[in-house]
Design a protein around this nucleic acid. Structure first.
Lengths: 345, 345
DNA sequence: CTGAAAGCGCTTACAG
DNA sequence: CTGAAAGCGCTTACAG
């Protein structure tokens, strides 16, 4: 493509940006009148209003939203802090948020944090300085300084896929990991399994631990003893799930089912089982958690617990809107995960 | 979690937002002095500066970026228009864009369009009204009105993963689909294949057609005749790839290799081949395009052409920054796709 | 080096 | 119904 040197097409070119002042001069009325006409204020003669609107149209007038923001102390922008927008989990949520807010005239400013403290802090400060109207956050570093920052934001904030720390009186929206895990294990039990292994993410992960709690409680309530030997820790990758599956199986060669705390780990487990020719679900059943796109592939067909991702995004958005519009309701919400039965169990 | 009724923690509460006016009053100096101190202007006594900074710190002062924007006509926000942020292709790009811009103090406003005209238009208008400093767009509806809108944006704009329409003098950044396809086919030829099928996305897709062009040119330059019978059209899904593979194979039972115009289609083809026990790559080799995360799975191991996604995002961001900073260089860029050899070929 | 004044683009009591 | 004035929070010539 050939490019000509010079300014941008349209830049300081064809369509000059015009202000209400210029409309006023052009029409020989005051800026107040123009403003009133443009905003359909009651104190305006409908005739002059029509003329102003026409002039605005002709001159290609567009209101400067920055100026409006300064006056109304409202920017119609919402901050969305996510650990990683390339993680399909969060990108789905982002779609939900976007769908709900964009129609109401809000725009979304998103910030990837990569789970780093510095980026979380920077984003929150940006939210503050830019006078955003609300914020939806998924922070991973909730130390004192960050908590204070959130507290002083002065705007409605919602924790998404996180639980609000005690020090903060803010609502959250999350999946009920505990009951989801309980359901998953119950499904395995109902299929007749008793020797069931669990693979967690990391020792520190709240989500992983909630799912472990669901696993244990369900087992115990069905009078099945857990020794701890059937619990293994993986990590965040398919590869880590594969290794964890190996360790789990070596320690418990008699297990007939595995509850992996997320789909990536479950897929790693499936991979190891496939490599060692252990048939699924014949020899070992597998259930995951998340219902990633991957999991429905022909070769995988993983039974798993689906988290309502888009719905979470939409609900967070509408909760936030309510708060922005003055609602006092700050009830947190736990959404249920649903069993998706497929081949592996 | 229990919530107390009332205002937000911090809302009109603990930390009042303070303005330079209040700092000025508090220190008994003029706002001009405060402003100069805060901005480290040269005409300021270092002593008073220090005191002002201290006061600002104590009063928890934060500059109002809206007010700054109004004066400087610069908002430090960039628009990012994507068809669908939940599409891993675009979310990777978004990460690249974010990484490059966020350090420079820019924030990214993103807009999902779902490829609808109305949403593209709304987003562009929002870019205009909100005085964003630049925009990166992936539009699908380039009719006259939209083109005019882009033209009148008055700010630097970059087409991402699209080619700029003739009417617009704006740079684009895209992958060289033609040469990528050429390389893919060349790879198959080098493996000894001659009867190669092609599965495209849709008849109208520019990208698909470029890849088809690469297919044909490579075949012809190696003196292999293409009759058209070995060309099949799928769609945007795995399912469509599966059906297309079936049609392709029924028409051309003697083919030994397939170039699918994207990975989703290739995976659909693999699925069909697996169902009919046609071994890959023994009986049929398959190559895709995109290098999705899916494609590297144990069960799939798809040979494919990788598009440098994050890099595209980063390059678009840095190009845009250059333009914002006054660069005259509006050279478009075509990035090369790279062959990722895996099991299926 | 400091302050008073004008201004960014808009809104909105206030007076007429 | 209309206009002049003050103001949103900040910056920046201009004068001293």
């Amino acid at each position: 493509m050939k490019t000509l040197p010079g300014t941008f097409p349209g830049w300081r070119g064809e369509v000059k940006i015009v202000t209400i002042k210029e409309i006023a001069k052009y029409m020989d009325v005051s800026v107040s009148t123009v403003s009133r006409a443009l905003n359909n204020h009651k104190d305006i003669n409908q005739d002059t209003r029509k003329k102003v609107l026409e002039a605005a149209e002709n001159l290609n007038y567009r209101p400067n939203s920055i100026a409006k923001s300064l006056i109304h102390n409202k920017t119609y922008t919402i901050g969305l802090m996510v650990p990683d927008i390339a993680d399909p989990f969060f990108s789905s949520i982002a779609v939900g948020v976007e769908e709900s807010l964009t129609d109401k005239g809000y725009q979304i400013v998103y910030g990837n944090t990569n789970r780093t403290r510095q980026k979380e802090k920077n984003f929150l400060e940006s939210v503050l300085d830019r006078k955003m109207d609300g914020v939806i956050i998924t922070p991973d570093n909730l130390d004192h300084e960050i908590i204070t920052l959130i507290q002083n934001l002065e705007i409605p904030a919602i924790f998404l896929r996180r639980r609000t720390p005690d020090a903060l009186n803010l609502p959250f929206i999350d999946v009920d990991h505990y009951s989801g895990a309980y359901k998953a294990v119950h499904h395995l039990l109902s299929k007749g399994h008793e020797r069931i292994g669990f693979i967690g993410m990391t020792k520190e992960s709240f989500i992983s631990n909630e799912r472990l709690r669901g696993f244990k409680d369900c087992m115990h309530q069905h009078h099945i003893h857990t020794s701890g030997k059937e619990i293994e820790i993986a990590g965040r990758t398919i590869e880590s799930g594969k290794h964890a599956m190996q360790r789990l199986f070596e320690k418990n060669p008699d297990i007939t089912a595995v509850f992996a705390s997320n789909d990536l780990i479950a897929i790693g487990a499936l991979e190891w089982l496939a490599q060692y020719n252990l048939s699924v679900p014949g020899r070992v059943s597998v259930i995951g958690f998340d219902n990633l796109e991957l999991s429905s592939l022909y070769w995988i067909q993983l039974t798993t617990m689906a988290q309502p991702r888009k719905k979470m995004g939409r609900m967070a958005a509408s909760m936030l809107l309510d708060l922005i519009n003055g609602s006092e309701n700050r009830e947190s919400i736990l959404l249920e995960a649903n069993l998706i039965k497929r081949r592996t169990s």
